[in-house]
Design a protein around this nucleic acid. Structure first.
Lengths: 349, 349
DNA sequence: GTTACGTCGGCAACCCCTTGCACATCGATG
DNA sequence: CATCGATGTGCAAGGGGTTGCCGACGTAAC
């Protein structure tokens, strides 16, 4: 049978309340002898407090909810790990849901997580109608939108400077002397897509080019879509000599497509991507990309959330992180080799 | 303020119990008129039942816990998604923890998840001492070990046939006429490592080779380690002309290392790997690999767990899935191009 | 008119823990 | 010797639900 506090109290010959006092270390002081007896009883019985009961009483679950579009996409997987890691350090556990690009499922998850009384909620919104916004707005759960802006007034956002990063990436291609710099973007309407396209366009304009002369495609952020789009973008007559690709995942697909078309990267087509997932350092050539500070994104998100939990008066914020150009071979920079400092330490035991 | 069942009952002019009956659809029948009033009150107040309170009462949390070594490793990320997906379909939510190769952290997570009264627990054990085994054994939570065997009598395992898969992969390299087939394995002592090395060895023996003549290295399952190991394995004088690599992640690193050393794959060195992550289809050349049926692994695991939850008498099992050779360019087979059927549909919106 | 039964609603116990408050004990103080 | 704090302990009220059981009521059968 399962051991409860009552059993501990009985064995220690005390009342249940005192057991709690010992467990929670105060606010009351317990005589050393009593404490000793209780500690021993706990050990002997192997007692572990029931977190559900505790949560019901304290109205804190020590849980944060995270809803991402798809955890099998490395970018979100890395983000989820970062969040889990920061949360864990503060004693929080993470409930993870994948929206799978399905608005209904996303809404269901958000509702479920709130029903489960998560102390905080982080959402990376999927592309879609987002009917849940209103639902969310009349619940008091501390919440935060990550990676993608939402037309949700009064919501805290943690974002990166998508426009600036894309501008920088595209400008880098310009500096490599590329003439026809196309763009493979994410789904239209999605916030990062809009901003990344804007950055690309601004760079072209500033370089005196017209973005209308050059191909622009919108597909989802995954590898498979990048691959298919790559085949199309790179096989036309007016082939671009460079591409700004809106996600590393897509870029992996484009690299593959280029290879199948017999095109050399970067000679025939240079590529700059966006995200900075770990895998980008391992392609051949390695992928030049605007690195998002994934760990910092996770950290900012969790820290703001914990702050808000501790102090509900904490004001809404918009936290924007900068991205950083990681120049590697795919854009025409020297491909780093032998002890590439961008090849990090991982714990994939 | 937060709405409780009491508010609903008051507004509907009935007792709290009846609200529950309506909410849970039986076992009692409620007069249509009463039901109607309650449903309306619920809607009007926006009432949502508190899942924590319900869990306390029913002793079911509708939550399963998953502990993996590292969610930023694509294999585990895909596994986590598969598990989440199957669980979600049955109304379960997933608490996810990363052990990060740290035995203490792994134990802490397992304890925490049990304290939180998860209905079931899935563990992909990290490499390490596993002090938590004893701890786990005297708790009644349905639990299951995934992907890695544990010397835990009476534990249910969901595994793949590592030995057979590795044998098949290595034999495939033999059939390509490779003479010196080295092995890049995972950390020594880890169960899949042992079996994969055994399969590799058996294939060599059967082909009349001596595995002692050929390099064998043990490193963690990640990209970075694969990269470093690849540099070493492929730069020696007695360079192998093929490698069986124990994980796709490592193989990505090896491909990169080969490129930096100026070696062509598969001409100079052929590669067969293991896991079958999505990313393996996108390298150049694409990676030949023994695909683990990730979705089925997740499905088996969750289904057994749910079965066990429903019926605690359900007996312990050992479920072994087969791996499947996915022949692509890295071993010398034709590199699939244009509409590679192994390039799947993903939802990375 | 009485009995028997079926239907619906409400009381109250319980799930396990936290914590405000009152109480008991004891040594020290006036 | 009575009073007063300081100190340690226990009672009991919740927190928000679920569900067994009993009672009230209405209808049908005798």
């Amino acid at each position: 049978m399962v051991v409860t506090r009552r059993d501990v109290a009985r064995l220690a010959g005390t009342s249940e309340a005192v057991v709690s006092y010992v467990l929670n270390d105060g606010p009351r002081n317990v005589a050393p002898a009593t404490r000793q007896r209780i500690v021993e009883a706990i050990k002997e019985l192997g007692y572990r407090p029931n977190a559900v009961a505790r949560s019901l009483k304290t109205s804190r679950t020590m849980t944060i909810g995270l809803v991402v579009p798809d955890n099998s996409n490395p970018f979100f997987a890395e983000l989820a790990r970062a969040i889990e890691d920061v949360g864990f350090a503060s004693g929080y556990t993470m409930l993870l849901g994948n929206a799978m690009g399905d608005d209904v499922r996303e809404a269901k998850y958000i509702r479920t997580l709130i029903d489960r009384q998560v102390d905080g909620l982080i959402v990376v919104p999927a592309h879609g109608p987002r009917g849940w916004i209103t639902e969310l707005s009349d619940t008091p759960v501390p919440r935060l939108v990550l990676d993608r802006e939402l037309e949700l007034p009064g919501a805290t956002h943690v974002l990166v400077d998508n426009e600036g990063g894309s501008y920088q990436a595209t400008t880098h291609l310009v500096q490599h002397g590329r003439q026809r710099i196309g763009c493979l973007a994410g789904l239209a309407g999605l916030h990062p897509t809009v901003d990344r396209v804007a950055g690309w366009r601004r760079a072209l304009t500033q370089a005196g080019r017209d973005s209308a002369d050059v191909p622009l495609m919108h597909v989802p952020f995954g590898r498979a879509d990048g691959y298919r789009a790559g085949l199309r973008l790179l096989s036309g007559a007016q082939r671009p000599d460079a591409l700004f690709v809106a996600s590393d995942e897509q870029a992996l697909g484009v690299l593959r497509a280029a290879a199948e078309l017999g095109l050399r990267v970067p000679d025939d087509v240079a590529i700059c991507a966006f995200d900075g997932i770990d895998g980008a350092a391992y392609t051949v050539p390695a992928l030049t990309t605007m690195r998002q500070p994934v760990d910092q994104l996770g950290r900012s998100a969790v820290e703001w959330l914990l702050g808000k939990i501790a102090n509900p008066e904490l004001s809404t914020r918009r936290i924007i992180h900068e991205t950083k150009l990681v120049a590697r071979g795919s854009c025409g920079c020297p491909d780093p080799a032998g002890g590439d400092s961008t090849i990090g330490e991982h714990h994939n035991v």
